[in-house]
Design a protein around this nucleic acid. Structure first.
Length: 488
RNA sequence: GGCCCCGUCGUCUAGCGGUCCAGGACAUCGCCCUCUCACGGCGGAGAUCGAGGGUUCGAAUCCCUUCGGGGCUACCA
C-alpha cells in the first residue's frame, strides 16, 4: 500500500482557530508517524470572506509549532496548485461530467425564491431544503428559466431513496437517510465551487487517503460520499475527531471567553512543544498515565484509534501547567535566550546586548525559571533586576516598611552590608542576619523589609540570591531610598 | 423541529465482562521544605461510571428505553 496522504485544508477567512490547528496536529502526527505526506491546501472559494494576511498568519503558526507541510504554499509539490481558486478548471470539468451523467443540474432559482421557499417550510414546520424544482426541467422550461436568470448554480442530484452509510475511524458505521438529504450547490453563481464539491475533487486529485476534519462535518459527509460514488472514485478513509469546546460546553467561537486565536498563545509566550503536547493530548490518548510527550514520542505513539469520541473542553489551567513544565525542563541558557526578546521589548535591554548583559540575564533567568508559567511573564518577573524606579506593593509597605522599627533596621543593614567586600550569598545573608540581630530582630522580620526595599514586592526569588545579582551598590542605594521614603 | 454524534471526579482522561466499593493528571485543600512566592515531596477531598430497565454467577464495560449536552440543517467553510 502506498504512503498515506493527509491534508489540512483551512480557509483564509481570519486568524487561525485553535480548533483547526488541533485538527492539523492530528494530520501532522499521522503523516509523520506513517511516513506519509502532510499537505496544506488553501480553500479560498469564498471570495467574500477572504481576509488579507490570514494565510500568512496561519503558515507562521504552523511553522511555529514545528508542523512544516510537505506540499502546499511556498513549498510546492506535484499535485498543485494548492489554492482552490487556481483550480477552477478542475471543478467545471467534473461538474460538467456530472451534468452529463445526470447527477447534477443547473438551478435557476433566485435567492429571493429560495428565501420564500424556506420561509414557507419554516412556517409549515417542514425540514428546510431545496425543493428540487429545477431538477427535472424540460428543455422548454430550462430555456425560459435561463432567460430569467443567466447565472444559474449547479446542484448535485442526491439520491432520493435508501441510506448513505460510511465508516468513520472514530465513530464506526454512520448512516443517513437519503430522503432527508438536500440537493446542495456544487458550483455557485460566481463560478466558484462550494466546499463540498471542491474538497471532494481536490482530495481525489491530490490522492488524499485520509480525510481528517472536525466533527461538525460529519453530517455533510453523505454529500461527499455520494459525490465520490457518482464520479466513480474511491472514497478516502473518514476521520472526524470530536470538537474542542469552550468553558460553557459550546463549540469554540469568537464569542467564547476562551482565546480561540492560535496566534494569541504564541504572543502570550507559550512554548511550541508545550502547545503541541497540549493540543495532541486534548482528544487523543496513548492509553498511558502520562502528561508529558516529546514531539518524537507523540509521532511514535500517535494513531487515529487513540482519538477519543467525545468533545473536550479547552482548559487553560492545563496548558499553563504544561507550559511551566516545559519551561522548567529547559536549560538556563536556552531559557535565557528565549526570554531575551521579551526583555528587549520591555526596554530593559537594547538591540545588541553585550556579553555582560547576556551573562547577567542568565543569572536572572536561573532565579525566575521555577516561577514562570509563560514567557510573557518574563518582563514583569525580571523588572527590578533592571529597573530601580519600581513601585512598592501597597500591602507590603504597610506590613513590612511603615513601621517605626524600619529605619533603624535598614540603617543597620546598610552599615553591615557596606562592610561586605566579597559580595556572595553567604556573606550577604550573614550580614543581613547580623544586622537584624543587632536591633533584636530576626527571620522574616528583617528579611521582608529588605525584600520590599530592594524589589518593591513581598514575594520573589531567595532574597540573598537576588541581592547578589543586583549587586552591592544598587542594593545599598535601594535600601537608603526606602529609608528616605518610608522612614518615619 | 428534523437528522447525526456524544455522556467516567470541576476539567483532560485510563478502563474494552471479574484484578474497579473505578486509576492518573490538572485545578482545589492540608502538611512538609522555607525569608516570601514558586518549585519539589507527602496526604486529603472529589465520579453510586447521566438515569431507568434488562442480559449475566458477575457490568463503567453488552442490549433496550429515557434524559442531558453538542453538531449540522447557506450560492460559509
Amino acid at each position: 500500500m502506498s504512503k498515506p496522504r493527509v491534508r489540512f485544508a483551512p480557509s483564509p477567512t481570519g486568524s487561525p482557530h485553535i480548533g483547526n490547528i488541533r485538527t492539523a496536529v492530528f494530520d501532522y502526527l499521522y503523516a509523520r508517524h506513517t511516513g506519509g505526506a502532510f499537505i496544506l491546501r488553501i480553500e479560498d472559494t469564498d471570495r467574500a470572506r477572504f481576509v488579507e494576511g490570514s494565510l500568512e498568519e496561519l503558515m507562521e503558526g504552523l511553522r511555529w509549532v514545528g508542523m512544516q507541510w510537505d506540499e502546499g504554499p511556498e513549498v510546492g509539490g506535484e499535485y498543485g496548485p494548492y489554492w482552490q481558486s487556481e483550480r477552477l478548471e478542475n471543478y467545471s470539468k467534473y461538474a460538467q461530467q456530472l451534468i452529463d451523467s445526470g447527477r447534477a443540474y443547473y438551478c435557476y432559482c433566485t435567492k429571493e425564491r429560495l428565501e420564500e421557499m424556506r420561509k414557507g417550510q419554516e412556517a409549515a414546520k417542514l425540514p428546510p431544503g431545496y425543493d428540487r424544482r429545477c431538477r427535472a426541467l424540460t428543455p422548454e422550461e430550462r430555456e425560459a428559466a435561463a432567460a430569467e436568470n443567466s447565472n444559474p448554480v449547479i446542484r448535485f442530484a442526491m439520491k432520493r431513496e435508501g441510506r448513505t452509510e460510511f465508516d468513520d475511524v472514530i465513530r464506526g458505521r454512520v448512516g443517513f437517510e437519503n430522503s432527508l438529504q438536500d440537493d446542495f450547490v456544487m458550483i455557485k453563481a460566481d463560478g466558484f465551487p462550494t466546499y463540498h464539491f471542491a474538497a471532494v475533487v481536490d482530495d481525489h486529485l491530490m490522492e488524499i487517503t485520509h480525510v481528517v476534519r472536525g466533527d461538525e462535518w460529519i453530517s455533510s459527509a453523505p454529500k461527499h460520499v455520494q459525490l465520490y460514488e457518482a464520479l466513480g472514485w474511491e472514497a478516502p478513509v473518514w476521520v472526524h475527531p470530536p470538537l474542542i469546546l469552550d468553558t460553557t460546553g459550546k463549540k469554540l467561537s469568537k464569542r467564547s471567553e476562551t482565546q480561540t486565536t492560535f496566534t494569541y498563545y504564541r504572543e502570550a509566550g507559550y512554548l511550541p512543544d508545550a502547545m503541541l503536547n497540549f493540543l495532541a493530548t486534548m482528544g487523543w490518548s496513548s492509553g498511558e498515565d502520562r502528561k508529558l510527550f516529546s514531539r518524537a514520542e507523540l509521532i511514535e505513539k500517535f494513531s487515529f484509534e487513540g482519538i477519543v469520541n467525545h468533545p473536550a473542553i479547552f482548559d487553560l489551567a492545563k496548558l499553563n501547567d504544561l507550559n511551566g513544565e516545559y519551561i522548567r525542563m529547559m536549560s538556563v541558557d536556552e531559557l535565557a535566550e528565549m526570554i531575551l526578546p521579551w526583555v528587549q521589548k520591555a526596554g530593559y535591554l537594547g538591540e545588541n546586548p553585550t556579553a555582560k548583559d547576556l551573562a547577567y540575564i542568565k543569572e536572572v533567568t536561573a532565579l525566575i525559571q521555577d516561577r514562570m508559567v509563560t514567557l510573557g511573564e518574563a518582563p514583569d518577573l525580571v523588572s527590578y533586576f533592571y529597573n530601580c524606579g519600581f513601585d512598592y506593593d501597597e500591602k507590603g509597605i504597610k506590613k513590612h516598611l511603615a513601621k517605626d522599627t524600619t529605619p533603624a533596621l535598614l540603617k543597620a543593614i546598610i552599615s553591615k552590608l557596606s562592610d561586605v567586600s566579597d559580595w556572595n550569598t553567604e556573606r550577604i545573608e550573614a550580614a543581613v542576619r547580623e544586622a537584624g540581630a543587632s536591633v533584636s530582630m530576626e527571620g522574616g522580620h528583617v528579611i521582608h523589609p529588605v525584600r520590599m526595599s530592594i524589589t518593591g514586592r513581598t514575594w520573589g526569588p531567595g532574597l540573598f540570591e537576588l541581592m547578589k545579582i543586583i549587586g552591592k551598590e544598587r542594593c545599598l542605594t535601594r535600601l537608603q531610598k526606602a529609608i528616605d521614603k518610608f522612614g518615619v
